[in-house]
Amino acid sequence: MAQKTVIEAIREGMDEEMARDPSVFLIGEDVGQRGGVFLASDGLYKKYGEYRVIDSPLAESCVVGVAIGAAVNGMRPIAEIQFADFIAPAMNQIIEEAARFCYRTAGDFNLPMVIRAPWGGGVHGALYHSQSIEATFGHIPGLKVVAPGTPADAKGLLKAAVRDPDPVLFLEHKRTYRLVKGEVPDGDGVVPIGKADIKREGTDLSLIAYGLMLTYCLQAAEKLAADGISAEVLDLRTIKPIDQDAIVATAKKTGKVLVVHEDTRFAGIAAEVMAIIMEHAFDALDAPIMRLTGPDVPAMPFNHVLEEAFMPNVDRILAKAKELAAY
């Protein structure tokens, strides 16, 4: 076990999967010589060569469309979208093609491919380097969507994604890349897709989050404990397929639930989590389910005052959790 950052864990995960399986390769903008704009693939070009780490032209549909074709022909591509905000040109290939290959051929074709995309705000990235896309893509049957929040989960879920027979959208919160450190198990340490994880046990209320908000919720839980409030923190880790059992279990255990995400509010993941609880744990609730989310504005502005006004933070989580605890 060693302490690593999220970005180190992702790099190691890719490196180990490429070493293990010659059909795994990386394609994306600046992933080769440059090592990726966040250095996620630093050193891999030198180690594996230009046809295992491919610098693509600046065209996202090309990155994903070529990856689809390679997956058809026996490869396991990892396609990197440089920022989640730039995934829109590839949406036709992701939604109409990748997500449909298996269904539209009744299983004759399947696409073992990963689409990695750095997402999320808090880095002065403004409207086009801060977006959250998990609800948009979580709505698409045929895709799997994961959003790890710790180094161990990032590495373990990346390995699971590479080995998965279906297309996986792998969301890496860019603020966590170097902010969040943690123990990463030696060896494979595969984390199964579709399983949430209780990151902190508690009895009074449940905080449900993923990505950067997981870190904030854990910090809030620590402060709540000082006030005598025992908060459980459930890390969804996978957005789709969502871990319904884990959500229902924590709701039944504490009877009070706050869902936190920085994605915009309307039809966000919180709405889905709340619906699951209403359908399966209504009788166990001691308070209305609450949510703390980004506001329904197009995206996060550049100015720091506006950015801070957009992002949920530890203080806001704390305030909302106290409101819930007092209900």
């Binding site: 469309g65 070529v66 074709g69 997956a71 058809v72 022909n73 490869m75 093609e97």
Partner: peptide, 10 residues
């Protein structure tokens, strides 16, 4: 057409 390019890349 992109799928074909990917098949050929493989």
């Amino acid at each position: 057409l992109l799928h074909a390019a990917g098949v050929a890349l493989a």
